[in-house]
Computed example of a mutant assay.
Amino acid sequence: MSSQYRLTILISDDTFPALKKAGYRLCIAKEVNGKYDVAFQTVKEVAYQNDFEFEERFRIFGTRKFEVGENAQPFTRRVPILSGREVTLDVDGAFSVVSGPVVPSKPFTVHNQYAYPLHFGVDAVVDNDYNTAFVHEMAVLSGEIFVAPKKKLLIWFEQGLETGMMFTHTVSNSIRLDFTETNDITISYTAPRSAPEKGIWSFGPLPVLGQTYHPETNTFSLTPAILPSGDELKQLGELLRLEPPTHSKRPLAITAA
Score class of each variant (00 low, 15 high):
residue 188 S to R: 00
residue 152 K to Q: 15
residue 198 K to A: 09
residue 220 F to H: 06
residue 17 P to T: 04
residue 160 G to P: 11
residue 142 S to R: 06
residue 96 S to G: 11
residue 41 Q to M: 06
residue 56 E to I: 00
residue 64 R to I: 05
residue 95 F to H: 08
residue 65 K to H: 15
residue 163 T to M: 02
residue 67 E to K: 11
residue 211 Q to I: 02
residue 26 L to G: 09
residue 146 F to C: 14
residue 184 D to Y: 14
residue 191 A to Y: 03
residue 52 F to D: 15
residue 129 D to L: 05
residue 163 T to W: 01
residue 164 G to N: 10
residue 177 L to R: 04
residue 149 P to S: 05
residue 39 A to Q: 01
residue 24 Y to T: 01
residue 157 F to A: 01
residue 180 T to M: 04
residue 58 F to R: 01
residue 238 E to V: 03
residue 256 A to T: 14
residue 246 T to D: 14
residue 210 G to T: 08
residue 43 V to P: 00
residue 1 M to H: 09
residue 102 V to L: 08
residue 198 K to V: 02
residue 231 D to E: 14
residue 165 M to W: 04
residue 125 V to R: 05
residue 59 R to M: 04
residue 48 Y to V: 06
residue 111 H to A: 08
residue 111 H to S: 10
residue 65 K to A: 12
residue 47 A to G: 14
residue 114 Y to M: 06
residue 65 K to S: 14
residue 84 G to E: 11
residue 200 I to N: 06
residue 95 F to R: 05
residue 145 I to Y: 06
residue 139 A to C: 04
residue 182 T to F: 09
residue 157 F to E: 02
residue 87 V to T: 11
residue 37 D to S: 13
residue 185 I to H: 03
residue 47 A to C: 10
residue 176 R to W: 09
residue 57 R to C: 11
residue 228 P to Q: 08
residue 66 F to M: 08
residue 35 K to G: 02
residue 135 V to L: 09
residue 128 N to P: 02
residue 4 Q to T: 14
residue 108 F to S: 05
residue 244 P to D: 12
residue 91 V to E: 15
residue 168 T to C: 06
residue 114 Y to I: 05
residue 206 L to F: 06
residue 255 T to M: 09
residue 16 F to L: 02
residue 162 E to G: 14
residue 161 L to S: 03
residue 120 F to S: 03
residue 123 D to Q: 08
residue 75 F to V: 04
residue 76 T to R: 11
residue 193 R to K: 10
residue 146 F to V: 13
residue 61 F to R: 02
residue 202 S to P: 00
residue 148 A to P: 15
residue 123 D to N: 08
residue 153 L to K: 05
residue 3 S to M: 09
residue 251 P to F: 07
residue 143 G to C: 10
residue 235 Q to N: 15
residue 33 N to L: 04
residue 237 G to W: 07
residue 131 N to R: 12
residue 33 N to F: 03
residue 48 Y to T: 12
residue 167 F to W: 03
residue 173 N to F: 01
residue 205 P to V: 01
residue 113 Q to D: 15
residue 36 Y to V: 00
residue 199 G to N: 02
residue 199 G to S: 02
residue 172 S to I: 05
residue 238 E to S: 14
residue 195 A to G: 08
residue 245 P to L: 06
residue 154 L to W: 07
residue 70 E to T: 13
residue 139 A to S: 14
residue 10 L to I: 08
residue 63 T to Y: 12
residue 229 S to I: 07
residue 28 I to A: 01
residue 231 D to G: 15
residue 254 I to Y: 01
residue 91 V to R: 13
residue 187 I to D: 00
residue 239 L to C: 03
residue 111 H to P: 14
